[in-house]
Simulated assay, not measured.
Amino acid sequence: MSQSIRVVLVDDDPLVRAGLGMILGGAPDIEVVGEAADGVEAVTVVAAAQPDVVLMDLRMPGRDGLEATRQVVAAQASSARLSPTRVIVLTTFDTDDMVVGALRAGASGFLLKDTPPPRIVAAIRSVAAGEPILSPTVTAQLIASVTSGGSDRSVAARSALDSLTERERDVAVAIGRGWSNAEIAAELYLGIPTVKTHVSRLLTKLGAENRVQIALIVHDAGRG
């Protein structure tokens, strides 16, 4: 990207924000343009700063990160910006069942709070470029741990997958496994441009905001 990636940090712990600021300050292509200590402040700061990426803590007093993520994503849906603000949720994972709610709300992925600094920087660059963070093992474990039950959602997900062509279902299932476009292309003997076309069609047909939400639908349908 030719311009700096603009980032807003949201966490109720000032030490966490300071640490993230130091990490990102060492990246020449990333600029921290705002901070917030809770969900209410986050929505206001994001609206004013118009960042490319928000690092959003989930567990905060007052309005939590889940509701703030919903509001940020909803605001982007009605915005005329060509490059929308994307949200990465911050979590401890082992205890935070709110992550899947954030993904359903439109977050582009998640980071563990103990993620090594180089991976945090890489994740921000990926999400800013429109590539959600999908780790095959961690995503599958996360989804499996918090999406049990919900029969109505399962029926809806199976119906959605049934509306796809066979090849589109193959691509959707591969996304559910956390595969990259290159991995899908190699496994299904397709060109990468063809895979990208299928992904775009899936987003439209499934009413999904990103690949993470496609993966959630696949897992709800029992196909992951």
Rank of each mutant, 00 (worst) to 15 (best):
100 V>T: 15
87 V>D: 04
168 E>Q: 15
213 Q>K: 00
187 E>K: 14
15 L>C: 02
120 I>Y: 00
10 V>D: 02
77 A>T: 04
39 G>N: 00
60 M>L: 09
183 E>W: 06
16 V>T: 06
104 R>K: 14
145 S>G: 13
181 N>M: 08
47 A>E: 11
79 S>H: 07
201 R>Q: 12
106 G>D: 09
27 A>V: 11
183 E>D: 13
8 V>A: 05
58 L>W: 05
216 L>A: 00
60 M>P: 11
45 V>F: 01
191 G>W: 05
78 S>E: 14
123 A>N: 09
6 R>K: 14
153 R>W: 09
38 D>N: 09
169 R>Q: 14
137 T>L: 11
170 D>I: 02
90 L>I: 01
96 D>K: 03
28 P>K: 05
106 G>V: 10
32 V>E: 02
122 A>N: 10
98 M>Q: 15
215 A>H: 07
95 T>N: 08
147 T>V: 11
68 A>W: 06
67 E>D: 15
161 L>G: 09
124 I>H: 04
178 G>V: 09
197 T>H: 06
98 M>C: 08
151 S>P: 15
221 A>D: 02
153 R>D: 12
103 L>F: 08
101 G>Y: 02
34 G>S: 05
164 L>R: 03
47 A>G: 08
213 Q>T: 03
93 F>W: 10
104 R>F: 06
112 L>K: 06
173 V>S: 06
162 D>Y: 12
103 L>A: 00
147 T>F: 01
152 D>P: 03
35 E>F: 00
140 A>S: 14
211 R>A: 09
120 I>G: 01
107 A>G: 10
21 G>F: 10
13 D>R: 11
178 G>Y: 07
